[in-house]
Design a protein around this nucleic acid. Structure first.
Length: 641
RNA sequence: GCCGACAUAGCUCAGUGGUAGAGCAAUUCACUCGUAAUGAAUAGGUCGUGGGUUCAACUCCCAUUGUCGGCUCCA
């Protein structure tokens, strides 16, 4: 008896019934058979050794594909658990899934694992991998599985099992050598496929992510089929470390945080502030150009404001304690929106006034748990590039389209062009009537579809007051960061009883869109710093050019060059130190100055400068006027070389 | 907040119970120099903070603040 297998290219091959999927791969090519990690038969993942019993479509998953990596890492997490079981037989196992960038396994063990323990586990893994133990799938009933793990003494597995229903889903175990795990699969044929791996770290993690539960130890690792891949990955982690904004911030003297003065509060040094100023100036100008108006609002407000807005009800945990002023409670603001609404309400608004687009670089303070603070990316005081658009229901869609376009423009100006979009819908706990949610969610969808944007849906991920679109960017290391957010708000217009007079002469409730493009200036700055690894493009660089005289004898000419550039608004510094030129060049390289302008005898005589660009020894020469117009052009174009 | 690790000079880091060290940076002097570190000298720390153990604590213990890796949360 034969079966027909349809391959991804549409061709049909005939094989004997019961052939292992791996044999099909071999028949296609040996290369594919080597690289294949798991088969997909009729759209369902299946182990390579599984027999194929009927006509079907077949494809093979390799490590190049995301699902292939997941299978590979998932199998490695079993291998790691196996090693842990060998070394620490008393360990109880939680879960061990693949994640982006590797896998982890949560274990419950009394011993605190150290770096040395990880090394021992890694060594044991190597031994087990060499044994090429096959991953054997066993399907069984829930009662049998429970009996198994009761005997083994794995309370966490039993807890997971207790929530499964074997009339609806198949319960399966995977055996690999003398290690057995409750697992849906799928897996590699055997551990011999797991070639190169590294255990990366260990940390605490609550069972099932709930802080009321016991904290387990989570061991992270990563693995690859080729040595080069592991090396590249470790190099990537190194590069990320080198680019760490906290490190660069210190090295380049951009910002600091002070233990004595409070965690999560950022101090901007002159050079960091210069870059921030440039970001903000660009932001302001762009907003004015795009029909926004600027607001400024106070940093605190009476409890009436926060009670009305609902913040004291919904957001209190993130707010700082109130302070007494004239016997009344005032609160430092965690958001800007209530203030903008106060401004809205100073006048009777007409539909003719709408949409109102009001923007503010508003500094807010939020209580963040001490353990989550992280450089500039997670702080307790930050400035949002906030704006609120007050409009009619009909205007929502075109306004959202405008915001999306504007976000693309702003992010693109900073070199972020690889964007992905997410639509978050109504969460379980939500305010507002269903038809409004539907309508608003629909407008967001239509807006994105009109812009031909593909997006992912995050069901139930919206804010309690409305659905939202989030935009994530990819940085130079291909890491994703969420920056922009566009959110509907059903809550505040109602709570503050906002109104406008419609064409019909009657009062209507305006709609409110809350949006931030950069998110927070602090966080954005941190991401930008890592994206550029501190090598800011000319328009952002705190020092755009350093003028370096070859010796003190040319100081006067150097001064005149610097002056000329300064007059054109170029940020230039004259290096007057009596050091050797090599020393000064090295120093300015480390400070990441985009241009070094060297002047000596030759240049003084010819009225030129010798130009050295950052990170390239290549030098050119130009007269000062040429140089100035060249730099100004580069600044205006916001180009990055 | 929770689990673990860490905190020594401005920075990067040595220093395993017996009076604190290096490199870089800083300051001074000499050199006046052609594309990634000229040489010499000087100065700089109550070892995060507060308790405790000890004849003696940077070192051991406890608490606290902060940082780092995660968890939870999130701009």
């Amino acid at each position: 008896m034969n079966i027909q297998a349809t391959l991804p290219d549409g061709s049909v091959r005939v094989f004997p019934k019961g052939i292992a999927a791996l044999e099909i791969a071999k028949a296609i090519s040996h290369r594919l058979a080597d690289d294949a990690l798991v088969a997909v038969i009729n759209g369902e993942q299946t182990e390579l050794y599984a027999p194929v019993e009927s006509d079907c479509s077949v494809k093979f998953v390799t490590f190049d594909q995301a699902e292939g990596k997941y299978v590979y890492w998932h199998s490695t997490s079993h291998l790691m658990a196996h090693a842990i079981q060998d070394i620490h037989p008393e360990a109880k196992f939680g879960v061990g899934p693949p994640v982006d960038g590797g896998f982890y396994y949560d274990i419950d063990i009394n011993k605190k694992l150290t770096e040395d323990d990880l090394k021992i586990i890694e060594d044991r893994m190597a031994v087990l991998a060499k044994q090429a133990n096959p991953f054997v799938r066993q399907e069984l009933s829930k009662a049998e599985a429970v009996a198994f793990f009761e005997k083994k003494g794995d309370p966490y597995k039993l807890e997971i099992l207790s929530e499964l229903d074997d009339t609806e889903e198949t319960i399966s175990l995977y055996h690999e050598g003398d290690f057995t795990d409750l697992c849906v699969g799928r897996h590699l044929p055997d551990t011999g496929k797991i070639k190169y791996f590294k255990i990366l770290s260990v940390s605490g993690s609550y069972w099932r992510g709930d802080e009321k539960n016991k904290q387990l130890q989570r061991i992270y690792g990563v693995s690859f089929p080729k040595k080069k891949m592991l090396e590249d990955h470790l190099a990537f982690l190194e590069e990320a470390k080198k680019r760490d904004h906290r490190k660069l911030g210190k090295q380049l003297d951009l910002f600091s945080v002070h233990e004595e003065a409070g965690a999560g509060l950022i101090y901007w040094h002159p050079k960091g502030a210069r870059i921030r100023l440039e970001v903000e100036d660009f932001w302001r100008k762009s907003h004015l150009d795009h029909g926004y108006q600027m607001l400024y609002s106070p940093h605190m407000g009476k409890s009436w404001l926060w009670e009305t807005s609902g913040h004291l009800g919904f957001y209190r945990d993130s707010m700082y304690a109130g302070m007494k002023v004239d016997e009344m409670d005032y609160y430092i603001k965690p958001m800007n929106c209530p203030f903008h609404i106060m401004i809205y309400k100073t006048q009777l608004r007409s539909y003719r006034d709408l949409p109102l687009r009001w923007a503010e670089l508003g500094t807010v303070y939020r209580y963040e748990k001490s353990g989550v603070l992280h450089g500039l990316l997670r702080v307790r005081g930050f400035t949002q590039d906030d704006a609120h658009i007050f409009c009619t229901l009909d205007q929502v869609e075109p306004e959202v389209i405008e915001v999306i376009r504007f976000a693309k423009y702003i992010l693109g100006s900073f070199g972020f062009t690889d964007l992905s979009f997410y639509l978050s819908t109504k969460p379980e706990k939500a305010v507002g009537e269903d038809h409004l949610w539907e309508k608003a969610t629909e407008s967001l969808k239509i807006a994105m579809e009109k812009e031909e944007i593909s997006y992912e849906v995050d069901e139930g991920g919206g804010a309690f007051y409305g659905p939202k679109i989030d935009i994530k960017i990819k940085d130079a290391l291909n890491r994703e960061w969420q920056l922009s957010t566009v959110q509907f708000d059903f809550n505040l217009p109602e709570r503050f009883d906002m109104k406008y007079i419609g064409e019909d002469g009657k009062e209507h409730r305006p709609f409110m869109v809350h949006r931030a493009l950069l998110g927070s200036i602090e966080r954005f700055f941190g991401i930008l710093l890592e994206h550029y690894a501190g090598d800011f493009p000319l328009w952002l660089a705190p020092v755009q050019a350093a003028v370096i005289p070859v010796s003190q004898n040319f100081m006067e000419y150097a001064e005149s060059v610097a002056d000329r550039m300064r007059k054109s608004g170029i940020r230039v510094e004259l290096d007057h130190r009596s050091e050797k030129i090599g020393y000064k060049i090295r120093d300015w390289e480390l400070k990441k100055a985009p241009y070094m302008l060297i002047v000596g005898e030759k240049e003084q005589t010819a009225g030129t400068v010798s130009i050295r660009k950052r990170k390239s020894a290549e030098t050119g020469s130009a007269n000062v006027e040429e140089l100035v117009s060249q730099l100004l052009e580069e600044i205006n174009n916001k180009t990055f070389h």
